[in-house]
């Protein structure tokens, strides 16, 4: 089991990480623009006069800082060395703040926002999907299905904007933007936490409304196939109680792909939720990435990408590792 299942997956994990991180190194270097020259020309454009030897000195310092010194192979080795010490370099636009500091500031906001919306939508969608299949003749379940299917095709930003207009502008019970109110001291105290929840409510609600649909559909489709399976029919023919059939035969088996989906989505958190963060001006990773792209801040883009790669592949590894616990058919292959 260890040799046949876990070791290949660990090898695969590290291979994916290596390739991903290498791509992050290669792609910016294929771009025609040179960030060092870019920075220099920006300084020149500000009207500063610099004599050629000073320009040369600045160029060398910048190359050193950006990891662009020496041949491509030298840069590559240097890149990995710095990566292992946790150094992703300085941000270009907020020089000299290190990229890791910027990410560390944004990550908790995104993490809180996305973990909450993911968990809520997953739980509600899965439970409703299970109910829909278990009680096929229930009018209420059908009504809920209709509602979810009606909301699902609405573009996300429209839902977000409508919520914002309704509950922050027309009936202002929630704040328009930001992660917390100015003047509230961040810390582990009740007023701050309440303020945090008030600010996070609309962004989370908007994401939950849209995401429930996907989880609901997947659960409903998988479960409605399982209802037709021979073992469910046989369980009915053997006179098992309805509750037992629903929980231990239908839901238990339909939830396996749901759990996979949940774990994979945790990996995507590190990329942030761009539109949510823009609409609600929420200080998360998506917003950070967005401004980094606009400003051409290569180090920051690379840093966020590396976080994303590690996040997604670690989530997939965890799914692979827990899968045998959920499905015995995998365990004995």
């Amino acid at each position: 089991m260890l040799k046949k299942y876990y070791i290949p997956r660990l090898i695969q994990y590290f291979t994916v990480l290596f390739i991903g991180v290498t791509l992050v190194f290669v792609i910016p270097r294929l771009l025609p623009s040179n960030p060092v020259e870019h920075q220099l020309s920006r300084m020149m454009a500000q009207g500063q006069y610099l004599d050629p030897s000073a320009i040369q000195a600045i160029r060398e310092t910048l190359e050193q800082l950006y990891g662009l010194k020496g041949g491509i192979f030298e840069q590559y080795v240097d890149y990995f060395k710095r990566l292992f010490t946790g150094d992703l370099g300085p941000s270009f636009t907020q020089f000299p703040t290190p990229v890791t500091t910027l990410i560390r500031q944004s990550l908790p906001w995104t993490l809180g926002l996305l973990l909450a919306s993911l968990s809520i939508s997953w739980i509600v969608g899965t439970v409703l999907g299970g109910i829909r299949v278990s009680f096929p003749r229930s009018k209420l379940a059908r009504l809920i299905e209709l509602l979810i299917m009606g909301v699902r095709p609405i573009p996300y930003y429209i839902v977000a904007l409508v919520l914002l207009i309704l509950f922050a502008f027309l009936w202002p019970i929630f704040p328009m933007s930001g992660g917390y109110r100015m003047g509230v001291k961040p810390g582990f105290n009740l007023p701050f936490i309440l303020d945090l929840l008030r600010h996070a409510f609309l962004p989370i609600l908007s994401m939950v409304i849209i995401e429930i649909g996907g989880w609901f559909l997947q659960m409903r489709n998988v479960a409605s196939n399982i209802v037709e399976e021979d073992y469910v029919v046989y369980a009915e023919a053997s006179g098992l109680p309805k509750a037992k059939i629903i929980f231990m035969y239908i839901v238990r088996n339909a939830i396996i792909p749901q759990i996979t989906g949940f774990a994979l989505n945790i990996g995507f958190i590190f990329g942030g939720a761009l539109i949510t963060e823009i609409v609600f001006a929420y200080p998360g990773m998506g917003y950070l990435l967005y401004s980094a792209i606009l400003a051409g801040d290569y180090n920051l883009i690379m840093g966020i990408n590396i976080f994303s790669i590690v996040g997604v592949s670690t989530a997939m590894l965890i799914v692979d590792l827990i899968y045998p616990l959920l499905d015995p058919r995998v365990r004995y292959q």
Binding site: E229, Y231, A237, G239, L240, D327, R329
Partner: peptide, 22 residues
Amino acid sequence: RRLRGARISLIPQGSMSVLNPV
């Protein structure tokens, strides 16, 4: 339900998935 499995019972087709796989 009380009848099925106890007083009358079914031997299903010999297919792969008569027993819950998990």
